[in-house]
Nucleic acid binder design. Structure first.
Lengths: 264, 264
DNA sequence: CCGCTAGTTCCATTATTTGGAACTTAATTT
DNA sequence: AAATTAAGTTCCAAATAATGGAACTAGCGG
């Protein structure tokens, strides 16, 4: 087809830092520890350069080098993230509301925000805790097939949606996964209802209801959701929860606007 | 081999990265979001330089700049740490054992490793979950007043202990907090028993038993602990748990040595 | 409208990063 | 055990990026 000249200025101009972050991402997204050679191949850096870069990352604790000469991500990240999470204002404001919603529904409640074309989960409340917390927190999921992602999208103006979706390759996770067209149709529906449903679009057997949250100026956009197995969460039940979840989302948005407002 | 005997490797030579990490730490350890001016004052950087550095950190998602012009840590850290945590081999091996120990004792179980003169908690298992997971995970606590820290120290040769403790300023958290001398005395006791006790040394009213874990070559050193309120955890009860916790720690160490061994 | 604080941009100078090549180990083969 | 190859490390002149003082702009309070 003719040139689809993407105006997306994706090249980051962060100099040295940018180059190092590419390496960090590379190691973080690998399936396991990587050896020098693996990283060299994947990054395409000359060996001398790469060597110094890795030494720096290891010295800062961002990477760790084990006895077999394999690199994995370092504990420094955990330490930094822990502080970041503990103080996150949205999370702090939302926490009691998430619990309340969990009490009402008895199902798992998530809080997430969008970053680029992904949803990042900030918190999660489960009834009895059979699953580990971190199993979701910090996780990045595609925006187009999660309740939180779709709810969040619905708040954005069309041009920002277009820009975001331009970089998305709609992978088909289940038969119900959206394409670009069906997603856009659903977004106008979400705008009318104020809630988004995930009808087994990411994983077969998993459904959810979600409602959007945002700061006044859309400096961040996210949502909350109630998720569970399809056999328990019939579409009728999800419809019943639409109103409570909208209300909860509204309260969190209000709380954020007050909490994040200009300092006294 | 000759290059390893370098005693004078205290100063970090990580160039650009090091300078940026100082800023990241500064923001992460602040009590709340910082304004440009606050960071300028704390870092002593000229405004022009600082500005560009912050722009780069924000562009990489390591920092976030809110509508009021205040900087806080960014979600990218959470994303990276989440992967790091989920794949951490020690944590994966330890997880079932921690649960087992929690079942046995009914109290909170921690897994931690030492990094510098701090203990970083990698995992935590509680009975009913009234407290949030992340409340401890990723947290850095002083090595000299935590069960895990003291247990871990006991595995190290004396010269490495000396080196580590050289940078520690023994802050007195409670009347029972160790000084350098009493700590060294206790370490030889821990070496005999294979378990360490925290007798309200970090927080009044909190006690724990801990046992050490390590890889074969001491490339990492850590421990597990059972923690709880002093009124419930009498010293007698802690003594009873000494044996089970030693056994559990032993199993984890074995698991790690097998799991982390040379690739098949 | 003025002065002031806070933040941003510019650009010649300075410091760091780069990467090819030479060098050292470690592993594998003969 | 020697020879061969692969894996990792060090070096340094050239290329690139970071630095920081100064000039500039925005926003606010009087």
């Amino acid at each position: 087809m003719a040139t689809l000249n993407n105006e997306t200025r994706e090249r980051r101009e962060t100099g040295t830092l940018g180059k190092l972050m590419v390496l960090l991402d590379l190691v973080a997204h690998a399936d396991g520890p990587l050896r020098f050679t693996d990283i060299a191949a994947a990054s395409g850096q000359p060996r001398g350069t790469l060597h110094r870069q890795l030494v720096h990352l290891v010295e800062e604790g961002l990477l760790e080098l084990d006895a077999d000469g394999r690199y994995s991500t370092g504990l420094r990240l955990l330490e930094l993230a822990s502080r970041s999470w503990a103080r996150n204002e949205l999370r702090l404001v939302a926490e009691p509301h998430l619990r309340e919603l969990q009490d009402l529904t008895g199902e798992t409640v998530h809080l997430g925000v969008i970053r680029g074309a992904s949803v990042i989960y900030l918190d999660k409340v489960e009834g009895r805790q059979p699953v580990r917390m971190y199993s979701q927190i910090g996780n990045a999921s595609p925006i187009y097939c999660t309740g939180v992602g779709k709810a969040a999208l619905s708040l954005l103006p069309d041009d920002r949606i277009d820009t975001l979706l331009a970089e998305v390759s709609f992978q088909r996770f289940t038969p119900a996964t959206h394409t670009r067209d069906t997603l856009l149709t659903e977004i106008s529906e979400i705008r009318r209802n104020g809630v988004a449903f995930d009808r087994e679009e990411h994983e077969v057997g998993i459904r959810c209801v979600a409602a959007p949250i945002s700061s006044e100026n859309l400096s961040f956009v996210g949502g909350i959701s109630v998720t569970g197995p399809a056999y328990r969460l019939t579409m009728e039940r999800l419809e019943e929860w639409a109103e409570p979840i909208r209300r909860t989302a509204g309260r969190i948005s209000t709380g954020i606007r007050i909490g994040l407002g200009p300092r006294p």
